[in-house]
Design a protein around this nucleic acid. Sequence first.
DNA 1: TTAACGTATTGACGGCCGTCGATGTGTATC
DNA 2: GATACACATCGACGGCCGTCAATACGTTAA
Lengths: 113, 113
Amino acid sequence: MKLLELPVRTRGVCCDLPPAISDTKAQRLAGALRVLADPARLQILDILRQAETPVCICDFPDRLQLSQPTVSHHMGKLKDAGLVEVTKKGIWSFYRLRSGTEARVQALLDAVS
Amino acid sequence: MKLLELPVRTRGVCCDLPPAISDTKAQRLAGALRVLADPARLQILDILRQAETPVCICDFPDRLQLSQPTVSHHMGKLKDAGLVEVTKKGIWSFYRLRSGTEARVQALLDAVS
DNA sequence: TTAACGTATTGACGGCCGTCGATGTGTATC
DNA sequence: GATACACATCGACGGCCGTCAATACGTTAA
């Protein structure tokens, strides 16, 4: 439980703060969060979460009202972040959530909303 | 459980995707995540989480190796997002996590790390 | 082989954001 | 009052990122 008592301070004197997350870890976390901090990518993840089979990337431009290169760009970000996997068959690319990602994504959306 | 079976597709024919998060909700979520997607703000939240009493903002510039205006800027973002509260006493501004924020932040960091 | 389709990549543009110096405001000390 | 301190705001700069047109690559159909 947090106290409401305010510390007594002295002019011109600053205090040391307790050690926190390391700079490198903070940057890793921030990077992971930045991948999710985009409306299009959130919708992609939500759609993949609902889907019962891998989804063809060709269906997204219409759904998201974005160009094909832009959708491909977002998918690349999600793939680099290890959130989605891709299976190519013929001329099509089918994307799905990586195993274990679903729970993390769900927890994230719950934590924010 | 997700099937690995790939859908059968036809050239030149795209499929409709199931409805997902609305555009407005996706933007809200993305905005909330963007506030957290910064190393400095993550460290601020982590320090406030550990603190047993409200923390004077004057202690952060040294700790984060950032200028005073920059720290003030980050605190403003966190305050606007409803993540922290401020109490002014004399010339000092003391910040603390808003009640209920701690659990949400913790859940978020768990979901990402 | 040629043509059509799906996808990824490239290059360029515009906007957003983190950062800092300078400045303004308020408060306490002398 | 005058000075010093803490804080917020403003203006400007630089870099990152989402977006798209154009292009290149690979695959399938004709």
